[in-house]
Write a protein that binds this DNA or RNA. Structure first.
Lengths: 243, 243
DNA sequence: TAGGGGAACTTGTACAAACAAGGCCAGACC
DNA sequence: GGTCTGGCCTTGTTTGTACAAGTTCCCCTA
């Protein structure tokens, strides 16, 4: 059962996306909303805070809230899982494991995943039949058996791990940059060597903060982009100089 | 004067970054923190909510909050302004305007910036003397005069616009992908044609939700990366299929 | 010793109240 | 006509209370 404020947030979100509150318009005041939903003002504030975090509405002290944008927001699972994302968007997704082996963790991996042995997996993912993404993932040893037990054509690893061992990915850190395709990248993705790839390196942890995997994902240029909304109040995005 | 919860958040953040609460450790309970700061629990909750939004701590109902990461978080201004970011990181930054002209807005620009005329500016930015970033920015007509009045070697446009006309950038939407360097890109950035560039397209608006600029920024590969923290509770990052 | 039960603890949700701070507008004033 | 001021509206901050829901861990039992 969802919380009260989530109901209110969902209803307001629907109204915004349906055009009841068009972009640029003002949202009803907190007092009005509180009256409409017979809720306390604090509860309404929590609801609109959700929308603000999604970048759907903005606010300034003293003035009414403004609708900033329509259309948005994927769940964490959809971002994390290529297959779940593609399916929810109506794409046809494919993929297979090209290689998989256990090995000792390098020093950087040992620190990041707090483990001494790792399972390294190379996967190629396709979208509408076209190779689009090359995943080089390193799993911590405690989850390795569950990953090895998966069929090599398993579509959604995230989903499978949840179904089988109840694993939930909860926190992620992502590093996004551009690289030139190496020989192997080029061959597997069907592009020329040196052509641009969008690289997403990420580390994911469980709800308890335990690291699960470290992955280097490379997308063919022109196939996929990342989108972020931020504001003066909430800025999850940062820029880094590479050494 | 900053709010109480901001003080508490800042203090906790400092403690985390200083290692008082190492990564993976538990934060004191809300009750303890409330006692320590002689604040209500609600105020403490607001403070830790800030840290959670920054991706510094995670939380689960029933269990203590966990420290997820050290080192983090730039202000919105630092992300938005290349110069402010570079300075705060101790880099030496340079740059110049290579071209600037007014023209009629294209159909897409007219919608995005809600204007019929735009000011187009091409800027090259350097880091430690090396060309790193090529900015193609389109300003809405209402801010164009202020931008034209800036000196061509103005380091921080963001800062200058704030100082002169009080303009504050408040909301942004970013689209990040990889592209191959075109002829002009390659010449100005000093790379070979076709080499990978990290592209960040963004649209920025004021606090009132009024669009200010639309920019296409291209970083030389290997110079800069973007970093995002997200969680199951707050996911500002989304993946998009390109047409 | 292994397991179950449960108490104590911790975070999540909701309500109520009050004041502060800033925006907005209309009416007064120059 | 233009400007300024004051009152009203709206969001921001803080405190207090109560209960719900989930986690942790100890103790007791089989």
């Amino acid at each position: 059962m969802a919380a009260r404020y989530e109901h209110i947030a969902a209803e307001l979100r629907d109204e915004i996306l349906a055009g009841v509150h068009p972009v640029g318009a003002q949202l009803p005041s907190e007092a009005e909303l509180a009256a409409r939903y017979s809720a306390a003002r604090g509860t309404v504030r929590q609801a609109v805070a959700v929308l603000a975090a999604e970048g759907l509405v903005g606010s300034r002290q003293g003035a009414r809230r403004i609708v900033l944008g329509g259309e948005r927001s994927q769940s964490f699972a959809e971002l994390h899982s290529f297959a779940q994302w593609a399916k929810s968007k109506g794409h046809t997704v494919g993929g297979e494991v090209l290689g998989q082996r256990r090995r000792r963790a390098g020093p950087a991996e040992a620190v990041r995943l707090s483990t001494t042995e790792v399972l390294e997996v190379l996967r190629l993912r396709t979208l509408e039949g076209e190779p689009v993404l090359l995943e080089r993932t390193v799993y911590a040893s405690w989850i390795a058996p569950a990953v090895e037990a998966l069929p090599s054509d398993c579509e959604s690893v995230t989903q499978a791990l949840y179904d089988r061992v109840g694993l939930v990915f909860a926190y992620g850190e992502h590093l996004i940059d551009a690289v030139a395709a190496g020989t192997e990248d080029a061959r597997l993705l069907g592009v020329r060597r040196g052509s641009p790839l969008l690289r997403q390196r990420r580390i994911t942890t469980t709800q308890e903060g335990r690291p699960v995997e470290w992955s280097d994902d490379r997308y063919r240029a022109g196939s996929v982009a990342f989108s972020i909304r931020n504001s003066i109040g909430a800025n999850p995005l940062t820029r880094l100089a590479l050494p």
